[in-house]
C-alpha cells in the first residue's frame, strides 16, 4: 500500500513543483501571458473547452492507436526479415535509419496530396514515426539471443524454423513491447503533424487553429496537456499489456 502511494506521490510532487514554477515565472512578468499563458489560465481553458477537447481527443486517439498498430506490425515483419537475412540487414538498415531523417511536415503535406484528408495520411505518418523504434528494439532483442541456446537447440535436432519458433520469436516479444511503448509517445507528435497538414478535426487541428489566433493561446496549451495525457495513457496501457502477455519478462522496478 505504502509503495503504491509513493508511486503516485512522486510524479504528483514533480508536476506540482513544475506548475508552481511556471505560474510564478509568468506572474512575475517573465513573459507575455498571451504567448505563455499561466497554468491557471490553461486549467480554465481545459474546463471551458472540455467538449471540443474531448471530441477531438477521440479523433486523435483513434488515429494514434491504429497508426501504432500498423507501424508495429510492419516493424515486426521488417525486424524478422532483417534478422533472418544478413544480406537484407545490410541492404535495408541504412534505409530505415535514413527514413527517420525525412522531415515529417514535408512528407505530411505530400501524403495529404496523395491520400486526401481522410485517415490514410494520418496512419501513414504515425506508422512511419512509430515503426522505427520498434524495428530497432525488436532487432536488439533478437540479437541478444544466447548463441549457446541456438547450439543447444541444434543438439535437439531443431532446424532453423524450429529454433525460430521456439526460441527467437518469443525472445523478440519483449523488444517489440519496448519499441511500442516508445512509439506510443512519439506517435502523438506524429498525429499533430499529420493533422496540421490537413484535417478538420483532432487535437493537432485544434492546436493549429488556436495558434493562428494568439488570443486563444490557453486553448492551444490545453490541447497540449490533453496530448500529453494521451501519451501517458498509451504508455501505461502498453506497459500493462506487456505485463499481462509477457509476465516472465517483467522485472519490477526498485
Amino acid at each position: 500500500m505504502k509503495r503504491r502511494a509513493t508511486y503516485l506521490l512522486a510524479p504528483l510532487t514533480a508536476v506540482v513543483i513544475l506548475l508552481g514554477a511556471w505560474e510564478l515565472y509568468v506572474d512575475l512578468g517573465g513573459t507575455d501571458p498571451d504567448v505563455l499563458p499561466p497554468p491557471h489560465a490553461v486549467a480554465a481553458a481545459l474546463y471551458d473547452y472540455r467538449g471540443d477537447l474531448w471530441s477531438n481527443l477521440l479523433v486523435t486517439a483513434e488515429e494514434v492507436v491504429l497508426g501504432i498498430l500498423a507501424g508495429a506490425v510492419v516493424a515486426l515483419g521488417l525486424a524478422l526479415v532483417i534478422h533472418l537475412s544478413g544480406w537484407l540487414r545490410r541492404a535495408l538498415y541504412p534505409l530505415l535509419v535514413a527514413s527517420q531523417a525525412v522531415p515529417i511536415p514535408l512528407i505530411a503535406a505530400l501524403l495529404v496530396i496523395w491520400l486526401g484528408f481522410g485517415l490514410g495520411p494520418k496512419l501513414a505518418i504515425i506508422g512511419l514515426i512509430s515503426f522505427f523504434p520498434v524495428v530497432v528494439t525488436t532487432l536488439a532483442a533478437l540479437d541478444q539471443v544466447d548463441p549457446d541456446l541456438i547450439k543447444l537447440m541444434r543438439t535437439f535436432g531443431a532446424g532453423r524454423g524450429q529454433t525460430f519458433r521456439y526460441v527467437e520469436l518469443p525472445s523478440a516479444l519483449p523488444g517489440l513491447f519496448t519499441g511500442t511503448k516508445l512509439a506510443a509517445v512519439l506517435s502523438v507528435i506524429g498525429a499533430v503533424f499529420a493533422e496540421w497538414s490537413g484535417a478538420n478535426s483532432g487535437l493537432g487541428n485544434l492546436f493549429r487553429i488556436a495558434d493562428t489566433q494568439i488570443q486563444t493561446a490557453p486553448e492551444a496549451y490545453a490541447a497540449v496537456v490533453v496530448l500529453a495525457l494521451l501519451a501517458l495513457l498509451l504508455f501505461a496501457l502498453f506497459s500493462a499489456a506487456e505485463r499481462w502477455i509477457l509476465p516472465w519478462a517483467y522485472h519490477p522496478p526498485r
Partner: peptide, 24 residues
C-alpha cells in the same frame, strides 16, 4: 548437452522446458 548455465527458456514452465526436445 546439459549446459553449465541451465539455458532454460524463461517463458516456458518447467514441464514445457523439459518437453522441448520432444516438441522439436
Amino acid at each position: 548437452l546439459m549446459p553449465q548455465r541451465d539455458l532454460l527458456l524463461p517463458w516456458l514452465s518447467a514441464l514445457d522446458n523439459a518437453a522441448l526436445p520432444l516438441r522439436v
